[in-house]
Each structure stands twice: as structure tokens, then as C-alpha cells.
Design a protein around this nucleic acid. Structure first.
Length: 421
RNA sequence: CGGGCCGUUGUGUAACGGUAGCACGCGUGAUUUGGGAUCACGUAGUCCGGGUUCAAAUCCCGGCGGCCCGACCA
């Protein structure tokens, strides 16, 4: 893409009221536009990042047998009354709206009801199970206090997977072996694996714990405790460190998990959450099946969520410097950011060639901008590789600098594709 | 939902109760071309509604909106 095709413009200063780093850089770079508190539009650059995150998650979900679908945003009141979650006394974050011809509908704030209700029509035999369904969707929560840029919005974009198993054993196997692995892959691929911990959190009726994926960050709103010791693969997200959410950090729990006293307190952002639902929803929706033994049984469920917009904001929070964002390779809006300093016709050729070779490149073709401004914009936008064509090099050469490096190098154009691999 | 701070061109900021100014951006032209370059001429603003006053961005009341702290977060 060429810069001049982009209608967005970078800002030298962030809006004064934005305190969160993610809001400052995403707005300055033209990735997002704030519509109101907690509600953001995704501009072309921001959408590219979201799409890349989405692609990674989709791949990992498909790898563990996930099947993608899409549940509706407008929700049927009667469906939610079955699970007793329509009432504002029970769930206070609803956005509800009146229908013109009477009745009400809600904007979905989660998907358990949709899935349970739909599957009631299709699941009847043990042969139908297990089943793993997921969707990407806008979610609406009437937060009394949305905050921290795109980290906690009233409207946000998420992926939710639901597992439908024949029994608890089958569920646990998927949950422990497949789902956790897929989640680790996702956070590694979006570039925050090093800082992200599989964290024990409060469970429910059907399991002692749920698990959160918590990314260490001072601007996080959660507090977790991380062990200094390595407790081995069983608890491992990274380096065998055990992590426990403050909400359940008690002596009993530590003893339960066989952990010592060597914990340190950290702030973190919850980027993912997986939960054993058991029959909490299959029961009210009569979501049952006939098993091999001819007995009628309730489907055993689990939920697996990731907020994509929050994830994008988290990456900015943990991966930036004083000049701008440093996007990890796999989710950068473009692989390369090509700058021409008074050599547009030559740069144009490089742009065409890279694009033809399948390299995603943004080419700053603005003729009325100084070199300094182009460099500043490249740093702000944060693509992994900066390429420069200028009078400083021969016509068969090009300058390359990684966003994470200080020094630029001049290489032969012939070697460019190899460098970008 | 409680508490605090705050609303001035697209962004950042200034203006004692008395001409709404500056910088960036944007437009036109010229000079520039390795870290937000220079010059000239333009463009664009007081959140909304009341009140006080000869006069309100400024003071008062009400509303709306934003941010932060806390509560909340299936």
C-alpha cells in the first residue's frame, strides 16, 4: 500500500486526555478512531493488525478441531430467560433495545446461550460429540467505567470457542491438552508469549479453577502472583513458573497445588480465559444426547475466550519505545516500511517488486514530506523492517533497519527478499 | 455507581470579566531533502442550555461529554 492511498494521518501529539499508552500510539498512528469512551472504530492500519490476530487464532482453533460459525449479535430475550441471565439484577452489563413491534432484544455480551440453544436442535447422539465451535464477534458490555484505551471497552471484538463433550473426562482431556496448547501458540505467535502466564483463577460449580492467560504489564488491572521456582511442565506457561490470580491466592490453594511460598506480586492484563462450564448451560437448554449405553446425558461444556482488541492493545502496551509501536512480526500491519528520500522512481520499482513477491509493504511515496517526518512516521507505525532508498547508496543497493535495531545496514537489492524472509 | 480532575479550530496550547492568539496539521506558491526543514499568504475553534453583566472562553446554575481512582467485571 502506498502512503498517499491512506486517508489517515499521523499525529505529533496524542490527545491530552489519553493516558493509556495503547490509546496514545494507536490514535497517533491512525490505527483507531475513538467514537466515544470505550468504543473505537478500526481504521485501515488497525484493521490489518486485527485481521492478522484473527488469522492466527483461526489457524490455532482449526488445528484443535474447531469449526467456525457466527452467532447473532441481537439476542432473543426468551433464550436468555432460560438460563436466568436476562434480568438486569443478574447481569448488569446488558445493552438492551426495544423492538418496534413490541418486545425486547439484547446485544450479546457473551455466547453461551446462543450456542447451547442452537445445538439443542442438532445434537442428539454420542456420535455428534465432541464438538468444538467458535466465532469472532463484536461484543457489547455496558461498562460503568470503560478505560485504558482499547483494553476495556463497551464494544469489543473477541473470539469465543465452546466445547461440547460427552463427559467430564473427555472435556478435561481437550481442555488440558488441546485448548491450553492452542492458547500458548496464539500468545507466542502474537509476540507476547514471554510475558504471558497461564494463571489459576476462580472456577465454578464444575471445576475448582478456571485459567487465565495473564500478560505482565504495569498498566494491567489484574494482580497475579508468580512463583520464582520452576514447578515443571504441568504448570508451565513459561519457565515453569506457577501463577495464581490474587482473587484465589490463599494458603489453601497454594497447598492444594503443591506450591511453596516463593511468590511475587505482579500486575497483568488478562488476554485470555478458559473455563469449565460443565452442565451450567446444557441443563437449562436441555442440551442432551443419547450415549452408547442408551442413557440420556447432559452435554459437558467448556468456554475459551480471547479479546482480540484487548490483545492488540496489550501488544502495544508491552512492545513500544519512546518513538512508537514495535509490532511483532506476525501481526504487524506491514512487513516492511519503504521510504524514498528524493528517489521516488527508484523506490517505486522496489515497491512493485516486493509487492509482486508477496511481501506486504507500505511505501511512503509522499513527495512533500521531509526525511525526518518519514522516519518519525515509520518509527511510530512500527513495522518490523524499514527500507530506505536515497542518494546515500548506489542504485543496486538499499538500506534496511529493523524496528528493534539501532543501526541500519546497506545491502544489495538482490539480497533484499532473503533479508525479509 | 461513589470520589477527583477537565472540556478553546483536526491535534497540542494561550487569553485579568474587555480585539479569541500561538505551534503543528491542512490549502496555494517558492526554497528544501537522512530525524517532524524554511518563508509568504490562506484555512479552521470557545461542548450544549439558561443566568449575572454595558460586556462571558473566563463568574453562577443545569445538562452533556472525556480522563483518572475506587466499586464492578457471566
Amino acid at each position: 500500500m502506498k502512503f498517499t492511498q491512506l486517508f489517515t494521518r499521523t499525529l505529533k501529539n496524542a490527545p491530552a486526555e489519553e493516558a493509556a499508552i495503547n490509546a496514545q500510539y494507536l490514535i497517533r498512528g491512525g490505527f483507531v478512531y475513538k467514537e466515544m469512551a470505550g468504543v473505537y472504530s478500526y481504521l485501515p492500519l488497525g484493521l490489518r493488525v486485527i485481521k492478522k490476530i484473527e488469522d492466527i487464532i483461526r489457524e490455532e482453533m482449526n488445528k484443535i478441531g474447531g469449526i467456525e460459525m457466527k452467532t447473532s449479535v441481537l439476542q432473543n430475550k426468551e433464550v436468555w430467560e432460560k438460563s436466568n441471565r436476562w434480568s438486569d439484577e443478574v447481569v448488569d452489563s446488558w445493552f438492551k433495545t426495544e423492538l418496534k413491534n413490541g418486545g425486547e432484544a439484547g446485544l450479546s455480551f457473551t455466547n453461551e446461550e446462543s450456542y447451547s440453544n442452537i445445538l439443542k436442535q442438532y445434537v442428539s447422539s454420542y456420535k455428534d460429540l465432541p464438538m468444538y465451535l467458535y466465532d469472532f464477534k463484536e461484543i457489547f458490555r455496558n461498562e460503568t467505567r470503560s478505560k485504558s484505551g482499547i483494553l476495556r471497552g463497551r464494544e469489543f471484538y473477541w473470539k469465543a470457542m465452546y466445547s461440547f463433550s460427552k463427559n467430564e473426562n473427555e472435556h478435561n482431556n481437550f481442555y488440558q491438552k488441546e485448548a491450553i496448547k492452542a492458547y500458548k501458540n496464539i500468545f507466542n505467535r502474537v509476540g507476547i508469549g514471554e510475558k504471558t502466564y497461564l494463571t489459576f483463577a476462580s472456577g465454578g460449580t464444575f471445576s475448582k479453577f478456571s485459567h487465565e492467560f495473564q500478560t505482565l504489564c504495569d498498566s494491567g488491572e489484574d494482580i497475579i502472583y508468580i512463583s520464582k521456582n520452576d514447578y515443571g511442565e504441568g504448570l508451565k506457561m513459561k519457565e515453569g513458573r506457577a501463577a495464581i490470580n490474587k482473587e484465589i491466592f490463599t494458603e489453601d490453594i497454594k497447598k492444594d497445588l503443591g506450591l511453596g511460598e516463593d511468590f511475587e506480586e505482579k500486575k497483568a492484563i488478562e488476554v485470555g480465559n478458559i473455563f469449565t462450564l460443565g452442565t451450567r448451560f446444557s441443563e437449562p437448554f436441555n442440551l442432551n444426547f443419547i450415549d452408547e449405553d442408551r442413557a440420556k446425558k447432559l452435554v459437558f461444556m467448556g468456554s475459551y475466550g480471547i479479546g482480540l482488541s484487548r490483545l492488540m492493545g496489550t501488544v502495544v502496551e508491552v512492545s513500544h519505545d519512546d518513538k512508537g509501536i514495535i509490532w511483532p512480526e506476525e501481526i504487524a500491519p506491514f512487513k516492511a516500511h519503504l521510504i524514498s528520500i528524493g528517489k521516488n522512481s527508484e523506490a517505486e520499482g522496489v515497491y512493485e517488486e516486493l509487492t509482486a513477491s508477496g511481501v506486504e509493504v507500505i511505501y511512503d511515496d509522499r513527495e512533500d514530506k521531509s526525511a525526518g517526518e518519514k522516519f518519525a512516521d515509520a518509527d511510530l507505525l512500527g513495522c518490523p523492517c524499514r527500507l530506505v532508498i536515497s542518494g546515500r547508496m548506489d542504485s543496486d543497493e538499499i538500506e534496511i533497519k529493523r524496528r528493534t535495531e539501532k543501526e541500519a545496514r546497506i545491502i544489495k537489492k538482490d539480497n533484499l527478499l532473503e533479508e525479509l524472509k
